[in-house]
Amino acid sequence: MGSFAYAAPDNLADALAVLEQHKNAGQRIQIFAGGTDVLVQLKAGDSEPRTFLDVKNIRETQTISLKGDSAFIGATIVCAQLYENLALKEMFPGLIESADLIGSTQIQGKATLGGNLCNASPAGDTIAALYANKAICMIAGKSGSRELPVEDFVTGVGRNALKPGEILLGLKLPKPNANTSDAYLRFIPRTEMDIAVVGAGVSITLDDEGVCVDATVAISAVAVTTLLVPEAAQALIGSSVDEVALQAAAQASSAAARPISDKRGTKEFRRKVVGVLTRRAALIAANRVKGEAE
């Protein structure tokens, strides 16, 4: 049995060195950002000693950049910073809303975008929104950096594609053009403070005639990982996002869902409501492109 330790290096090289050192020594190390999941898990059973590697002081993880064709959001940017950033909110309203839905105001003051992704909960709110926005994970390791599409990053419940010695620095998102927008909706029994029973993130691109030329639909809390639903996207593409297309997208999401029944909802409920949310989110995203009031 080892002991607990905490390290908060202020640069990437030192952080990677700490990771490497633990890897070589076979000691458990856990990357630590907001801690809002980690500390709950520490109390809820996984109390094994480990080193917490706090990566909040690393400049790269604390950066938001909107220069060029894509936006970069550092992994340790907290939810509150996301929704306080008006430019980001304008660019990715759905993603920012998903961050605004996580936990309480207090949680949003600590919980990070990277943490939500790395925690890889099937119900993680930002994950479906990141899928819908075709986000790319920017990963650093001893032997250099690599990029990974977000849908390849989440590999299972609580599992991600980071190898020992690697750190998620942040997420790169292609900037949407003027005819693209997104939306994320989740269902919870209360108005706040719950884990999503189901979630749906949709990104939509319309042409000047209002016809959908591209769409991405991602659904969450209905399988072990967030799912992309190309069938739902296909149902929207080529349509004017009318009721028929929306219904078809809803049905596609319901059909793609592989939910379980648990304390938060039944299989049947999840299957049905994920369709409802897909339809509603697609409509919101389309209306956003059209500049219509929600």
Binding site: A8, G35, V40, D54, Q106, I107, G109, K110
Partner: peptide, 20 residues
Amino acid sequence: SVMLDDRLVCSCLTLAAEVQ
């Protein structure tokens, strides 16, 4: 609830070491 710099946070989900 406490303030950590300018953010409202839960002190139960904050490591004491983090406030250095």
